[in-house]
Simulated scan of single mutants.
Amino acid sequence: MTTLTTATALPNHRVGPLAGLRHTMTLAWRSLVQIKHNPMELIDLSIQPLMFVLLFTYVFGGAIANSPGEYLRFMLPGIVVQNALFATLTTGFGLNMDLTKGFFDRLRALPIARWAPLAGRILADTVKQAWSIALLLGVGVILGFRVGTGVFGLLGAVALLLAFTLAASWLSVLVGVLASDPEKVQVFGFVVIFPLTFTSNAFVPTESMPGWLQAWVKVNPVTTLADALRGLLVSGPEARPIVTSLLWALGIVVVFAPLAVRAVRRRV
């Protein structure tokens, strides 16, 4: 009877901020260590985006920009954006796996902060995002891409992209909680993110598209983010796309973060 009473009381145990931070770091490390046992996740983060860079540069470079090197300067920021948005799906996919396999149920019996599992998942996926960005930019440099704005431009581009994808992760969290199985999270990516990125100027200039499509491309948040990264990495900062991207990120957080937190609380 004593054991049952203690276990029942644990979920209501008050956890201080420092303890909650330790719990978050522990759960984030758990998510990162899982890569060793699930190599397919590393392939999604590394091999797949590298294949996109190589194929787009050498297959389409000559046709679109007359030379692979010139096209690489235009395309690489766009493909970094595309890969970062697809990588946000790992948050929803991993969260759904934890929910469907009962990991969150086991955590209820432990005196940990209620927000630690979700925060740990998002933190781990932010680290994965940083790795993927560094990998793509590194390969781009090997292929001939050069950052024309210096260290501060590079750091600004990485910070902006991480901020935007961190905001977009809330949408992934919402999908991961509402989906009945992990496969449906992946379906969401192909139904929403795939057309969103390909109907932008991430890979081709807006002027090359039909007039009716250009109207959408110009307001597409992927276009704005790709333009911001091009400005920060290639031709110098451009205030408008940077500010607009930050406003998009803020809007996504304001709309989807409360919905995601509410969905997590209802399911957990």
Rank of each mutant, 00 (worst) to 15 (best):
M1D: 13
L4I: 14
T5I: 15
P17T: 12
L21W: 11
R22S: 14
M25Y: 14
T26G: 09
L27V: 08
A28D: 08
W29L: 14
S31C: 13
H37L: 12
N38Q: 15
E41C: 04
E41W: 15
L42F: 14
Q48C: 09
V53W: 05
L55E: 11
L55Q: 09
F56Y: 15
F56H: 05
Y58E: 12
G62F: 12
I64D: 04
N66V: 15
S67I: 11
Y71G: 03
Y71V: 11
Y71P: 05
R73Q: 15
F74E: 07
V80M: 10
V81K: 01
A87D: 08
G92W: 00
G92M: 06
N96S: 11
T100L: 12
K101S: 15
F104E: 12
D105P: 01
L110Y: 08
P111G: 00
P117T: 07
P117S: 06
A119E: 04
G120T: 03
G120E: 00
I122T: 09
A124E: 02
D125A: 12
D125C: 06
T126M: 12
K128C: 02
Q129M: 08
W131D: 07
S132C: 10
I133Q: 00
A134Y: 03
L136H: 03
G138Q: 08
G138W: 06
G138L: 06
R146M: 08
V147I: 15
V147L: 04
G148Q: 06
L155W: 08
L160H: 05
A163P: 03
F164I: 06
T165L: 02
T165R: 03
L166M: 12
S169C: 04
S169Q: 12
W170Y: 07
L171D: 01
L178N: 04
L178Y: 13
S180H: 12
D181L: 11
V192Q: 07
F194T: 14
L196P: 00
T197N: 05
T197C: 11
S200F: 01
A202H: 00
S208C: 09
M209W: 10
P210K: 06
A215W: 13
V219P: 02
N220F: 05
P221E: 02
T223F: 00
T224G: 00
L229H: 04
R230K: 03
G236T: 07
A239D: 08
R240L: 15
R240H: 12
P241R: 00
P241Y: 01
L246R: 07
L247P: 03
L250S: 14
G251W: 03
V253I: 14
V254W: 11
F256H: 00
A257R: 14
P258L: 10
L259D: 01
V261A: 09
V261S: 05
A263F: 01
V264S: 04
R265S: 09
R266C: 05
R267I: 10
